[in-house]
């Protein structure tokens, strides 16, 4: 069972819908026991960073704990940004600190928010992109991005006039700046790959 963290914020349902669509058992929950028992957890998010962090509240520590214990964790959009150390969106906010780096504004000189389908180069050694080929379009909608500063993290980039980190993987911790649940069939394959990762970690 994959647990999507329910922390009173937009978009959580869309992620559940997408997992159900691919035939994957998923539960929307904020119960500590459900999080501990899950095969994998998903931290979604459509919100401003500060609002999301405060909405997460005490769940933050639990998510950190289970992620560090080796359980697969997938952060999406603001849920992905929260994996990092800090953000400067509408003030200074601490993230979960699971991946080294800070969330900063997209540099000026281009249309912001970065909104729409951007081509992403898919490194062969990133599990989320298994069987997807060398590049695919995904849907982005954000004004801030994570500057990845973690030597243990693998990073996939999108070209938005600069190398924009689009996805990271650090051991069992995964994140996508784009929305796999809103990226059509290609996005659903990312979620299938995550479900596969969870199954491998938790053989029945």
């Amino acid at each position: 069972m994959i647990v999507v963290i329910d922390y009173n914020i937009g978009n959580v349902k869309s992620v559940c819908n997408a997992f159900r669509h691919i035939g994957c058992e998923v539960e929307l929950s904020c119960e500590p026991q459900a999080v501990k028992d899950a095969d994998g957890i998903v931290l979604p998010g459509v919100a401003a960073f500060g609002y999301a962090v405060s909405a997460l509240g005490a769940l933050a520590e639990l998510i950190k704990e289970v992620a560090l214990s080796g359980k697969p964790l997938l952060g999406i959009c603001v849920g992905y940004q929260m994996l990092f150390d800090k953000s400067s969106e509408y003030g200074r906010h601490d993230g979960l600190g699971l991946i080294c780096g800070n969330v900063v504004p997209i540099p000026p000189g281009r249309v912001i928010p970065h909104m729409g389908w951007n081509l992403v180069e898919l490194p062969e050694d990133m599990d989320l992109f298994a069987r997807l080929g060398s590049e695919k379009h995904f849907y982005f909608a954000h004004s801030f991005y994570a500057e990845v500063a973690d030597s243990q993290a693998r990073v996939a980039f999108a070209d938005y006039g600069f190398d924009l980190p689009a996805s990271v993987q650090k051991a069992n911790i995964y994140g996508t700046q784009f929305h796999p649940e809103k990226s059509g069939k290609t996005g659903l394959k990312i979620l299938e790959n995550f479900a596969q990762i969870c199954r491998q970690k938790n053989p029945t």
Binding site: A47, E89, H142
Partner: peptide, 9 residues
């Protein structure tokens, strides 16, 4: 709305 949900929505 933008401060709560982010301006992208």
């Amino acid at each position: 709305a933008s401060q709560r949900f982010g301006n992208q929505c």
